[in-house]
């Protein structure tokens, strides 16, 4: 009983702490909006694509960029291993990598880079299209000032979650980019059962 008394206070302290942290404040404001899976982008062959073109499939979506001068995240590796775990169910899923760096990630460049991950579809677009897609997914990104003298050697800070969207593009789940591939596959599988897809 004594324990239950302290719990709200602990929660209140946590909430205050989180409210005080700068970036979290923006996240709290963002939390009012739902994640929406709508987009109009360009695929690796230069064709315009919308989320509706992937209708009927569960979508795994990540935002990022291919230019990694220092260290490269292994999230695409995670995605491709997760897809292997899905086995035959892979056909019910589409995996999308949306660049937040359309300036460097042209369709041709994405195609070359993603040759190592043939089951992942790279999407780019105009700066406005990328901004609109990111806004819908509540993804934030920001081009960073250049440190050296090469104006093209900029980095882009960005949200790095893995999104799982349902067959019509509605939000199902958001997982950390460092998720284990089997956990990601399990989560996707849980949504492939028709009954659970509406949860």
């Amino acid at each position: 009983m004594r324990k239950s008394f302290s719990m709200p206070r602990l929660l209140a302290c946590l909430l205050i702490l989180i409210a005080l942290a700068g970036p979290s404040r923006a996240a709290t404001e963002d939390a009012d909006r739902a994640v929406v899976g709508r987009f109009l982008l360009t695929d690796m062959n230069g064709r315009a694509v919308t989320d509706e073109m992937y209708g009927g499939k569960i979508r795994i979506v990540v935002f990022g960029y291919t230019y990694c001068p220092d260290i490269c995240p292994t999230v695409l590796n995670t995605l491709s291993v997760a897809l292997e775990h899905l086995g035959a169910d892979r056909a019910k899923v589409v995996t999308l990598f949306v660049t937040v760096d359309p300036e460097r990630d042209s369709p041709a460049h994405l195609k070359e880079y993603l040759a190592s991950f043939p089951e992942i579809i790279g999407l780019t677009g105009s700066a406005e299209q990328i901004a609109a897609a990111a806004r819908n997914f509540k993804v934030r990104y920001e081009k960073q000032p250049v440190e050296g003298n090469d104006p093209m050697a900029y980095s882009v800070d960005h949200s790095s979650s893995i999104y799982i969207m349902d067959r019509v593009g509605n939000f199902l789940a958001r997982m950390p980019h460092a998720s284990k591939p089997d956990r990601l596959a399990e989560r996707v599988k849980s949504y492939l059962a028709p009954r659970k897809a509406e949860d």
């Binding site: 970036p23 979290s24 996240a27 939390a31 949200s159 790095s160 950390p176 980019h177």
Partner: peptide
């Protein structure tokens, strides 16, 4: 956890 920023 869900509301926390996912900033890399």
């Amino acid at each position: 956890g869900l509301a926390a920023p996912a900033a890399q």
